[in-house]
């Protein structure tokens, strides 16, 4: 049972390395991370908050945009693309269950993105570590937190990507839906939310409802986990005002992000099992 999952996961990772997906994602993340962290530290100067903290703020903003995009690019093709190429029919004729295919691909893709995140952001952190004074442990913790939550964010959008890939009738349709998901969660949702807050001016939107609205978007959960988690970092980012109102504990936020991984993954497995081939 588990062996089939592992065999598929290893194949996906190898495939990721072969078609330069891993290299491309890593380079992209590293290049942008380095640029952001070097530029981002300039206005703070020597006496401001620790440079690693600043880096965490800028990196997490970058991640909210980039990681969902990379994850969706990889995931939208996972099922629909293989159907288009004819390899899915073959894979299904093997002694493999459909949930094992989803689970295997998920593990492989999470592996690919974990490597890209650790190497990409690790390079940025290293570069800063070389130029900056010794960091406080809180900043280091924030950086580890950033790595962990980035992987979780990637996993959530991979799972969402599988959902569209399973439901879509072709790879092209899946690509369209994936772009829609990215636009909605990463761009439109926050604009709509901010607009709502301005218009509402605290009448209808209670703290409870606001928390709920944030939990309804994995990208916002990620932001909360990184920006509002530590007081120092919360002050550095524009989220400080909002963060004051968020009454959710980091554990609750992490739990919600975990749910954003498990529920779509479960949905993708069930929908895949029911899909006509």
């Amino acid at each position: 049972m588990i062996r089939s999952v592992w065999i598929i996961a290893v194949r996906e990772m190898r495939d990721g390395f072969r078609n330069r997906r891993v290299v491309a994602s890593t380079l992209l993340l590293a290049a942008l991370a380095l640029t952001l962290s070097l530029i981002g530290s300039a206005p703070v100067g020597e006496l401001g908050a620790s440079r690693l903290s600043v880096a965490v703020v800028s990196l997490s903003s970058l991640t909210t945009f980039l990681i969902p995009l990379i994850a969706l690019i990889i995931a939208h093709d996972a099922i629909a693309g293989e159907f288009d190429r004819g390899t899915m029919l073959l894979l299904l004729s093997y002694p493999v269950r459909r949930w094992q295919i989803i689970a295997g691909k998920f593990l492989g893709h999470v592996g690919i993105l974990t490597i890209a995140i650790i190497i990409g952001y690790g390079l940025a952190a290293l570069a800063m570590g070389l130029t900056a004074a010794p960091q406080e442990s809180a900043s280091r913790l924030a950086f580890l937190n950033l790595l962990g939550t980035s992987v979780m964010l990637a996993a959530a959008f991979l799972a969402l990507g599988y959902c569209v890939s399973v439901v879509a009738q072709s790879q092209r349709a899946a690509a369209g839906a994936a772009i829609g998901i990215w636009l909605f969660f990463v761009i439109l949702y926050d604009i709509a939310l901010l607009g709502l807050l301005v218009v509402d001016d605290g009448r209808m939107v209670t703290v409870g409802l606001f928390n709920l609205l944030l939990l309804a978007n994995p990208a916002d959960i990620y932001r909360m986990l990184n920006l509002a988690g530590l007081p120092d970092i919360g002050r550095l980012s524009g989220m400080a005002g909002i963060a004051r109102d968020v009454t959710l504990s980091p554990a609750a936020l992490a739990g919600a992000l975990l749910a954003w991984i498990c529920v779509p993954l479960l949905f993708a497995s069930v929908a895949f099992s029911r899909r006509q081939v």
Binding site: I7, R14, R18, R85, T87, L90, V96
Partner: peptide, 29 residues
């Protein structure tokens, strides 16, 4: 299914893998 061999119509294997890797994958499954 372990005792069934199937050849689908017009199959496209991943370009980046070698023949050996493709066959190894299916043999392991």
């Amino acid at each position: 299914r372990r005792a069934i061999g199937f050849l689908p119509e017009s199959i496209v294997f991943p370009d980046g893998m070698t023949g050996v890797e493709v066959l190894d994958f299916y043999a392991r499954l």
